[in-house]
Amino acid sequence: MENQSIIKVDHLDLYAGKTHILKDINIEIPKNKLTVILGPSGCGKTTLLKCMNRLTDLTPDIKVTGNIFIGKQPVFGAKTDIVALRRKMGLLSQRPFPLPMNIYNNIAYGLKLRGKYSRTELNDLVEHYLRQVNLWEEVKDRLRSPAVRLSIGQQQRLCLARGLAVNPEIILADEPTSALDPVSSEAIEKQFAALAKDYTLVMVTHVLRQARRIADYVVFMYLGEVIEMRPAREFFEDPREEQTKKYLAGAFN
């Protein structure tokens, strides 16, 4: 890999009860690039993503062997400060889930967890992050109204801004456009392309065209295994593995 890697998945196996969900995953995700995890539904893409900031903790009866390293820090381990580690990774889920607060506090919540800010600093930062996702003009007059009143596309951009506000190095996104209308999807995709200069993005999707449009690298998964990981152009133009060829030809859909 020509780029420096920031996430290293090392012999990761995951069992939920007796089901073997992730099978010996070994990948390195390059820094400040947009890496897409691609594969048919149920192949373990989302699980792999949630391993990276250990949201798997929320699901009982999960057993993990192997490890993931963010920089040099292991994700799984008794000594891991998981709260600090999670803060390095913003998260965008399939559907937006705004915090049960007003628009302003949705951004300010993470900031307040991060440190002490004066009222003016908070105001400035909230505006900054809302501008970064092109939401400021739409919401500046109703910052105190509940975030759930926004359209779903606006909510998703708010969730992105909320994630950016804790100043992460990595953004994890789990099919972030799957619940959105085409216009909002495009807005998010454009954001992602722009963010890839300063952030490492890992995005799960099963939409081939989306991966084609924005991916720098592609991790292709099938039935819990990584089939191949390549730069996007090579992946789409010259797939090596049999399963990849089939998937690109639409065989699994």
């Binding site: 559907r95 915090l99 909320r162």
Partner: peptide, 27 residues
């Protein structure tokens, strides 16, 4: 309460209790 709400709070750097206290309880 959807699990994703807890996930969101945790990913913002909240501890489990902070997520319960200010996000889940509010919801």
């Amino acid at each position: 309460i959807p699990k994703e709400l807890t996930e969101a709070a945790l990913s913002l750097g909240a501890t489990r209790w902070e997520a319960v206290r200010s996000i889940l309880n509010r919801k």
